[in-house]
Design a protein around this nucleic acid. Structure first.
Lengths: 247, 247
DNA sequence: ACAGGATCTTTCCTATAGGATCTAGGGAAC
DNA sequence: GTTCCCTAGATCCTATAGGAAAGATCCTGT
């Protein structure tokens, strides 16, 4: 490991594809994946110097990445004391998070109506990918511990998020879309704790189907906004365990 | 000016009251006030090293402050090219910004209903301060150029924002409140361009009165959410110049 | 005269060093 | 035995130096 890594040459050394971005963005992605991996316990001290040595860079880009991460709520900063992994979300925060998400999702669905051909095409594509991921999960009925199960669950969440992201990207309001991205990290973190998302994969897919039909105009006259409101409400009930789970 | 400013001693040198925060926050506030002052033309290069010398600090805290400012949309970053003052908002962005604000304000008003005694008390206080600022503006009917007019306008906007902020702080959803803060800088920037806010100070005050009455239950049965929706819609029409302005 | 290219300056970006601060652990006093 | 103080280690925060890329300027060839 060469100690001197200057300029864009550093990217070649790190091996990943090097877009026209600074080292800061690369470090940000690395730390983000680390925090979203779930292996870091809440409250853990995240030393800048330590992390910089582990990543093989200087503390400065790490510090910049933490400033961005602070805005996402994944880490908390205490002046002169350093950064820490944010404490686990309280039930109250769950509620507020889902409340905010409901606001954003319903608004985006309303703004995206009527659907453009581009929206419909991408939405169908995302929905198909979602269906594939759900099928992969349902293939393993029993306890396929560790590796494949975690991978399948991560893929399911990614495709689920992708479906919603398509709507945000076509809602015509960059601020609403940006707000959704800001909440993305916290939502991902919530799923790691609640865990009740994967068993309901089939239901989530069906509700997405209704939303897609509403956008396409092939539904039963329900507006996309109403369909989305219903979907998010169902997600909320399942996440909070308010429904009597069958079997 | 001593060249060596380490630790919290730097704050004493800079003269302001020194809370328990790092130098980064202080630099952030300084730059934020500079950008919100309106003297910086859009597209202006904001050199890190230059700004650091002007503020008498090292480039590192300036760099961290810019990472935060980038999230607010006031500055844009181009990798390996530095930071620039963000380009002026397009009419399209005006619309999206007001659209997003409508979503946030109406949601906050709905969540804050029914109003707690604390909300009503602070709302009345904020409204009274708003009234004072409006009276100060109306005192000077003619063209009181420069100094006092700008000061009065700034005070009016601050008090107007304060009224809305009270509702957000009592809506019980930290994410919605945080999103409002994120849009704050852009809204402030929009007002500098549109300028059509001050002449309508009287109308804005009257609409706030309706909102206050709705929260207090002394209104004509209208919900706070509806009152807020009406207010924001009126602001939108005035800002976009859709109404035929009398006189 | 104009276009293309080389050079130079400015600026950004990263790395390293040093001072200030917080936390942990041990010893002394009550 | 408990509490307080003090010392040592680690960490954060800031400052400075040096290498690299982008933009501007000047020169040269056609």
């Amino acid at each position: 490991m060469s100690a001197q890594l200057h300029g864009t040459d550093a990217f070649a050394e790190l091996g990943s594809a090097a877009p026209r971005v600074g080292l800061r963005d690369h470090v940000y992605d690395r730390i983000l994946k680390l925090l979203l991996g779930g292996t870091v316990e809440p409250g853990t001290r995240l030393g800048i110097d330590t992390l910089a040595r582990q990543l093989g860079v200087s503390p400065t880009p790490v510090r910049e990445a933490f400033v961005e991460l602070e805005r996402t709520g994944l880490v908390t900063r205490e002046a002169l004391k350093g950064y820490r992994m944010a404490p686990p979300l309280s039930p109250r925060q769950y509620g507020e998070l889902l409340e905010a998400r409901t606001m954003l999702e319903t608004t985006a669905a309303r703004l995206a109506t009527p659907a453009t051909p581009a929206l419909l095409a991408q939405l169908r594509e995302a929905h198909e990918a979602h269906r594939v991921s759900v099928d992969r999960i349902l293939e393993y009925p029993g306890e396929v511990s560790d590796e494949v199960a975690v991978e399948a669950a991560a893929d399911f969440y990614a495709k689920d998020t992708g479906f919603h992201r398509v709507i945000f990207e076509h809602c015509g309001n960059r601020y609403v879309s940006s707000m959704s991205d800001s909440l993305g990290a916290q939502l991902h973190r919530m799923r790691q704790v609640v865990h009740s998302g994967v068993p309901d994969a089939r239901e989530a897919l069906a509700e997405h189907e209704i939303i897609l039909a509403a956008f396409a105009g092939t539904g039963s006259g329900i507006t996309p906004e109403a369909a989305m409101a219903h979907h998010v409400e169902q997600v909320r009930r399942r996440a909070l365990g308010l429904d009597a789970a069958p079997s």
